[in-house]
Design a protein around this nucleic acid. Sequence first.
RNA 1: GGGCGAUUAGCUCAGGUGGUUAGAGCGCAUCCCUGAUAAGGAUGAGGUCCGUGGUUCGAGUCCACGAUCGCCCA
Length: 1052
Amino acid sequence: MSWRSLPAVVGSDGGWDAMEQAVLARWREDQVFAKSLELRKDGEPFVFYEGPPTANGRPGSHHVLSRVFKDIFPRFQTMQGRFVERRAGWDCHGLPVEIEVEKQLGISGKPEIEAFGIAEFNARCRESVSGYLDEWERLTERIGFWVDMSTAYRTMDATYVESVWWSLAALWDKGLIYEADKVVPYCPRCGTALSSHEVAQGYKDVDDPSIFVRFPLTDDPTLSLLVWTTTPWTLPSNQAAAIHPNVTYAEVDNGGDRLILAKALVDKVFGEGTPVVREIAASDLVGRTYDPPFPFVPGAHRIVSADFVTTEDGTGIVHIAPAFGEDDMAVGRANDLPLTNPVDKQGLFTEQITGFAGRFVKDADRDLIADLNSRGRLFRELTYTHTYPHCWRCATPLLYYAKPSWYIRTTDVRERMMELNQTVGWHPSRVRDGRFGRWLEDNVDWAISRERYWGTPLPLWRCDECSQITAVGGFDDLRAKAVNPPGEDFDPHRPYVDDVVVRCACGGEAHRVPEVIDVWYDSGAMPFAQQHYPFSGEQALEGKFPADYICEAQDQTRGWFYSLHAEATMLFDSVAYRNVVCLGHILDTDGQKMSKTKGNVIEPWTVLDKYGADPFRWYLLTAQQAGESFRFSLDAIEEAMRRFLLTVWNTYSFLVTYASLPDGWSPEMGAPEVADRPAIDQWALARLDETVDEVTAQLADYDAATAGRAIANFVDELSNWYVRTCRRRFWRSDDRADQQAAFATLHECLATTAKLLAPFCPFLADEMYVNLVAAHDSAAPSSVHLVDWPTSGGRADPQLVHAMDEVRRAVSLGRSARKEAKIRVRQPLAEAVVACAPADAAAMDAHTGLIADELNVKSVRFVTDPADLLHVTIKPNYRTLGPRFGKSMPDVATAFGALDGPTVVNALDGGDSVSITVAGESHAIGGDDVLREVHPSEGYVVANDGPVAVGLATELNDDLRLEGLAREVIHAVQAARKAAGLRVEEHILLHLDGSGAIREAVHAHGAHIQSETLSDEISIGHGAPFAGIHREEHVLDGEPLAVRLDRVATAG
RNA sequence: GGGCGAUUAGCUCAGGUGGUUAGAGCGCAUCCCUGAUAAGGAUGAGGUCCGUGGUUCGAGUCCACGAUCGCCCA
């Protein structure tokens, strides 16, 4: 049982990476992840769901972000004793996969896919999704994301598809699935509808006609509605004119031309100051009919009311063609308008449109406008520049076009979804009622069908005879209902499933509807589909549903977060997850989204190879509140590494270095009881306990950033206060008990920090733990990831912590004063005077030695009487007085102005009461109501910070001068030692050649110089007794000093 | 066009329930230490808290409007 030597991680390229690789190898060899699960298998389950990524592309830095957050809380909960199964998953279906395969095959569009053959095409899709699996697995392991990939669920597996079928059949039985027309963006050239994802890729700026058209009223043909549209080709299909119920309309006489439009738009359309003949309420218009712009299509041609109408553009009267717009369709449904569509699948007008039949609609715009004009219907024609979606494949302008689709009636459970959402712990919390809550409020039925190939087939069979739908809820169900039942190794994908014919209740034969389902439904089904529920048994979800925790980026609000929530609500009347962390996006240094086209993407392996996984993880977990976006750069990682990870490492390295020395220490040697250790040790342990409590609370609340900052603060104080001020106790101590106390204290702080750090930086934490704990205790678990989460030892001590804060402030002020006086720290001074309130003086009194050491002064004196060497002024404490006096605060401030600072402070410190007069009444004020400020007075160099000031006696006597000089000598010798290339523990022979004050100083402090420089012999004078291995010259306080040293031959 | 969020030092970010001196790191300047040493530390300079109104005795913090950036949706 002994200390292992440390790998070099500082200053060596790839050092950190090598350290992590060694840890990784050990995890692999010892099966540590599997052991961590085995260890907790009887613990209360903590359910985690992995949102399945699509594995048909390389993982990027944003995937590292979500995977790191998916890792930290399960690790934390595991250490807390919970059993956290972590099963990976892969999203296999969908358009992105199909597009990838189309590219590979060099084909494009549905006709070409069908010509190629669906069976072969889908086989290629199946292969394609596993193409990047190796890379995903390699990255996942390297970043330390513990998830079981060997048992990963795949949405394309037959068992998975079967569970999805079960759920869809269940929804069908509840009457929640229906078929209806839906307006979709449609490419007439490719003959296919496009997903929103595809539409988003194809926006372009285009010029379209913008026309104002007269719709004469039936009951008054000399009066016309003025209607504005940018799609003239939809005017033949006009069914209605929509107006807003709360907008006031107006009649305008434009040179005998009587027109109606929104009153607010009169000036915009006709010019400033155009007179309004009369105002017309919307209610006076609704229901009236008009003469349609074209005679081809029969219909209502009626004025209807609709909320979406605005007075931003146009005339406030909107042309409605229900087949060609989502709003139009909704208005059509609400008003029972006929759905007429005189445009075929190639985007050509049908025979119904006399004179235009067979023409591509967009190309007919010009002639349609001319036709309107010839009949006196055109009021005005302009050109309108706007962004309009085009097919990303062939650049054809998309048409919005009504097509039949399958829907899930999620609006039936909207209220319930909103109720259940209230019980979900969202992080950040605003998402609950913000982005997600709003989404639920605006919920519309879920369009789940896709006219594609590679997806879960919609398990609905339509009878050729009676058109009745038969829903199939599983493979056995299908075999029971089929005319030609499939065999055991049935692939439920297209085209095979399409060949299965089902016997309808009417006796007719039913064929499957052609659609597959939205991939989001697949992923939302993972809670039960990954278990093959219910085919694997009704109990299959026990302890596995709902999830305690999931995590994804915020773009999943309408994706996975929604599909999980909707399906769980409809199928189980339950939430799917109790807690969800919703992450922000990764941006580049300029705040721009990373994208391949901008060339600003940082590949994860770049970071991992250069810095390692822990620095990457630490940065992602703590640099920003989860939910906010990151400004990401390699420099930012480097800063995180240097500022935190290397500080931890140096502190750890310090302990191991000195503990390993012959007169060092190891945990089995023990140490004095905490109560018998110095105050500084008790302070460190008090801070440790505070930190443990804080980190535990924050991680339990899914706040990694705040928890991480608490660790970082502690580590900073441990390194820059505890270790720095205690350094000598470790390596040269005459007091063995004190040395052991120091080692034991630092050891406990670091061992516990390793445990706190385990969920954040699992590599560093394990490296530290193994060396600090496991290497000394054969009974201890072999990895930090197998230990219990630390608990605080009840040693929190707010008073001690406060006192130390005051000490540090006093030291800081003292250094500031030294700088002011231009006196270096090596020069000892006689006295530091700390001026403050009696309570603070009492707190600091136990630590005067520390202050003296840090400031290099002989003594520390407290001054609490303000009359002594400092002037004291007072101010009202608004925080305590504000609530008491409210509006009278200005009077209070005035009353304070009349008080004499020193008098008040003396009275309060002496226990007397002080009162002020406000609005004629006397009020007693206490110590807390007064803020004191001290100001420097003569004679001392003083630095002050509010209620505390530190003064230094700058006058030097001979003793102080000589001592300062002796330290200069030591400094010179140490520089020489280093220049000579000596090891720190090597002893030397030392000869100094100097005169005057230097010689005096060496005589006075020779023993000290000797011990500090490890000089077995010291001599001073001209002419050295030995040649030595090194000689150098210095000038101290204007006097020359030559240093000569020689190595002491060590026996053996 | 709608929703959500952000805007604090040159840069990256902290700043419960409003309280009068707005903090940290990096960078910069000056310096210290030289037994944590291919490291470490200190002291400084640096801010109209995006803007304009409002509520309040008091606003970085609450409200309204606007600007810019990001995300989602249309």
